[in-house]
């Protein structure tokens, strides 16, 4: 078996080392332009974010993303309940819904909705570090079963990018990545303050924002732009290849 030392050694030889490596490989400080972007994002007022909503609306159409007009938590809650009641499950007949364990989603309090009393509502809870390996495994299997069973998955997102209608989702305890993937319908509820103008803003934050730096990208960062799609049969665009067939987005208005 080739060792890392031999493998890298062959590359160094091919490169004609010992020429020194480039100095600017790993950037250590933001450029002036990047500093400006960071400042812009941090000082942005809710009013300045309004044009992004319009962009998001326009971009959603060709992407087949359902961008809903409801803005208040109460209206969004009602709209989600309606969706759960109206939509049909793709596999089987049982209606189950799975969601992240996330403060914004917790505050929707769907579990209290009388209309949903016949529907199983699951939450992907964090796996406690105090559990034994076996217990952790059991909990994961339970989550997996619930995700597979659910026809709707509800998540939030770290950011939503207006220019490309992209949801950026890191993986954290309680925020299972399969919730935005395995159920046929993905509902995302995002706070308006998480709205960014462009992918450039997103990457500048991911790279230079102190909190983002401290957390890192996590072991799985997903950027999702619209529902699953394919053009592999005669270039005819079909939505719902393997991932969700529908993606519904709700923006929660700033409460400040």
């Amino acid at each position: 078996m080739t060792t890392q030392k031999d493998f890298i050694g062959d590359i160094s030889t091919a490169l004609g080392r010992p020429t020194p490596a480039a100095v600017d490989l790993f950037t250590v400080a933001p450029t002036t332009a990047e500093q400006d972007i960071l400042k812009n994002i941090r000082q942005r007022s809710p009013g300045e974010r309004q044009p992004f909503i319009k962009t998001l609306q326009e971009v959603s159409v060709p992407l087949h993303l359902d961008f809903h007009p409801e803005r208040s938590l109460e209206d969004i809650r009602q709209a989600i309940i309606t969706l759960i009641l109206e939509k049909d499950p793709e596999w089987g007949t049982k209606k189950s819904v799975v969601r992240w364990d996330h403060p914004l989603l917790n505050s929707l309090n769907l579990e209290a909705a009388a209309e949903l009393k016949d529907i199983s509502l699951y939450t992907t809870s964090p796996v406690a570090a105090t559990l034994s390996a076996e217990e952790r495994q059991q909990q994961r299997q339970q989550t997996r079963k619930e995700v597979e069973e659910s026809f709707i998955g509800i998540t939030s997102a770290d950011y939503c990018i207006a220019a490309t209608a992209t949801l950026a989702m890191k993986t954290r305890p309680g925020q299972a990545r399969s919730v935005s993937l395995v159920p046929s319908i993905h509902l995302a509820v995002v706070e308006e303050s998480k709205l960014l103008a462009t992918l450039e803003e997103l990457y500048t934050l991911l790279k230079w924002d102190e909190a983002e730096q401290a957390e890192g990208l996590t072991n799985n960062l997903s950027l999702v732009s619209g529902p699953s799609k394919t053009g592999d049969i005669e270039l005819v665009m079909v939505h719902g290849a393997h991932g969700p067939r529908e993606l519904h987005l709700f923006l929660v208005a700033d409460r400040s």
């Binding site: 570090a129 909990q139 309680g174 072991n219």
Partner: peptide, 11 residues
């Protein structure tokens, strides 16, 4: 970046 972390519920 890697496998599921210990306190994550999937991956």
């Amino acid at each position: 970046g890697g496998p599921a972390q210990a306190d994550h519920s999937d991956g």
